[in-house]
């Protein structure tokens, strides 16, 4: 554990909590892509199956359980509890265009051709593109509430901190997880355009982020 990894995990947790509380308090999931949240729930489910097979640390186990619970609770709020506020017509990204290539790639490019390893690889590849329905939705409607942009900012910051964590681990432990690093770089690139808009529009102005 290093400071980049810990801060990264905390940003990830903050992002998920921001989103959950936003929906819970406003009793609305307007502007939120339910598809992205289902994909993240699928990411955590397929990655954390090792909860049943290996123990790493109390921290690791607790964080995994918290992420899983919050991911499913968010999906529950969007699709069941506050379903009437869900903008399904704007959330029109075709997730099969992500799931099929990601599933195919995880069979082709993995560390070991074993069920748990393939599912872990699938979760890594899927996480790198899971935010696309949300970014697509913002591009389509041309705006996002500032709280939604704070959620995306912390999610992007988590990714950027994980890159720093890998640089650190490479130099201190000789750690290099090729699949995670390549996917992580791809994922972080998706946030660059958003980061630019966040700093130039959201933090300087107030209220919603509108696209030019």
């Amino acid at each position: 554990m290093n400071i980049f990894r810990l801060l990264g995990d905390m940003c990830h947790l903050v992002a998920i909590i921001i989103l959950f509380l936003k929906i819970w308090r406003s009793k609305s999931c307007a502007g939120i892509s339910g598809k992205s949240q289902v994909l993240f729930a699928l990411v955590f489910t397929t990655r954390y199956l090792d909860l049943f097979t290996s123990f790493i640390s109390v921290y690791n186990t607790v964080m995994k359980v918290v992420f899983l619970v919050l991911a499913y609770a968010t999906v529950y709020l969007i699709y069941l509890r506050f379903r009437s506020t869900y903008n399904s017509e704007s959330d029109s990204f075709r997730v099969e265009f992500l799931l099929v290539p990601v599933a195919g790639l995880s069979f082709l490019e993995n560390y070991a051709f074993a069920p748990l390893e393939i599912l872990w690889t699938f979760s890594i590849y899927l996480e790198s593109v899971a935010i696309l329905p949300q970014l697509f939705m913002i591009t389509k409607t041309g705006e996002a509430e500032s709280i939604t942009t704070h959620y995306l900012f912390f999610l992007g910051l988590y990714r950027a901190l994980y890159l720093a964590n890998w640089v650190w681990r490479y130099h201190t432990e000789g750690f290099f997880d090729q699949i995670a690093v390549v996917s992580g770089v791809v994922q972080t690139i998706f946030y660059c355009d958003f980061f630019y808009l966040y700093f130039t529009k959201v933090l300087r102005g107030s209220g919603k982020m509108t696209l030019p």
Binding site: H12, R47, S54, I56, A112, E117, Y162, G174
Partner: peptide
């Protein structure tokens, strides 16, 4: 020594 199959990150 680090084992690639451990997946110790979240």
């Amino acid at each position: 020594e680090y084992n690639i199959y451990d997946h110790d990150e979240l």
